[in-house]
């Protein structure tokens, strides 16, 4: 599929253009990825800015999740994975040989489509990442537990049963716990892979609310199959199709006057 024009980055905006004033937190440059020789992402250029929510939309198989999992090198776990190009976080290529991968993943936290609480207590789930990082002080851990739970609006619901199994929580609570578990590490970037796909509208609203609160502190990347969610809960939107970035712009631009007719066909529900 040919690209008629290079993906616009930071285009001239309208009045409500949330155009970032800061340099990008992450720059994806000429990034291609393949599994077992099968190309799944082709030559993607994309900037992710701090204090913004970027939504990634596109039909199944468009490479959204692969891109997301490339941002914290989770694809490395797949031995058939190979890539070209670079992903630069704060001026450093994260695929550099000297990159310490566990600490990268602490800086770039990830929440998955299905909430996966580890089969332990709520408390143990929350402090797991900190313990991995070698943080031991009980005081410090307790503080992190409380503040991360507060930021996902879960503290009041679970504060009296932190020692209970996390599995006992409802689906929506579990997903907020998973978000809190990542926040406890105080990451700089937050990756969310269709975090609401299994949730009811009320739980979804709670997650979106939390994201709106969190956006001032993090660069957020939200992969979603739900174009309405992208419209509601993001500042910028990138549209992917068959492994290529078709268009990236402010969310209002994408949803009101997309440049490519494939984008408009997708967001109006003609395919996908």
């Amino acid at each position: 599929m040919d690209k008629t024009s290079p993906a616009p980055i930071g285009p001239p905006g309208q009045i409500d253009d949330p155009r970032p004033t800061q340099p990008p937190k992450i720059s994806v440059r000429g990034f291609s990825a393949s599994f077992d020789g099968q190309s799944v992402l082709r030559n993607v250029d994309l900037d992710i800015y701090p204090a913004q929510r970027l939504a990634i939309i596109g039909p199944a198989g468009s490479g959204k999740t692969v891109l997301l999992r490339s941002l914290n090198r989770l694809n490395d776990l797949e031995p058939t994975f190979s890539k070209m190009g670079e992903i630069v976080l704060d001026g450093q290529d994260i695929y550099d040989q000297r990159q310490d991968v566990p600490s990268l993943r602490r800086r770039v936290g990830m929440v998955y489509a299905v909430p996966v609480p580890l089969p332990w207590s709520i408390y143990d789930n929350l402090v797991y990442g900190l313990k991995l990082a070698g943080i031991r002080g009980r005081r410090r851990l307790n503080e992190a537990v409380e503040s991360s739970l507060r930021s996902v609006v879960l503290w009041d619901e679970v504060k009296d049963r932190l020692k209970e199994p996390a599995m006992n929580l409802s689906g929506g609570q579990q997903q907020r716990l998973c978000l809190a578990r990542v926040l406890a590490l105080e990451p700089e970037v937050l990756l969310l892979d269709e975090p609401c796909s299994g949730l009811d509208p009320i739980s979804t609203a709670k997650i979106e609310e939390a994201l709106a609160e969190l956006k001032s502190k993090y660069a957020i990347v939200l992969v979603t199959n739900n174009t309405k969610q992208a419209a509601r809960a993001s500042d910028r939107t990138a549209f992917f199709l068959m492994g290529e970035l078709i268009e990236c712009n402010t969310t209002s631009q994408i949803f009101t006057s997309p440049r490519h007719n494939r984008t408009s066909a997708y967001i109006t529900g003609h395919f996908g």
Binding site: N72, L74, L77, P102, S103, R105, R106, G109, M110, Y112, V114, V116, L118, Y128, G129, L132, A133, C178, R181, V182, L185
Partner: peptide, 10 residues
Amino acid sequence: SYRDVSYGLG
């Protein structure tokens, strides 16, 4: 998925 989660948390 536990493995993914654990890697994701560093």
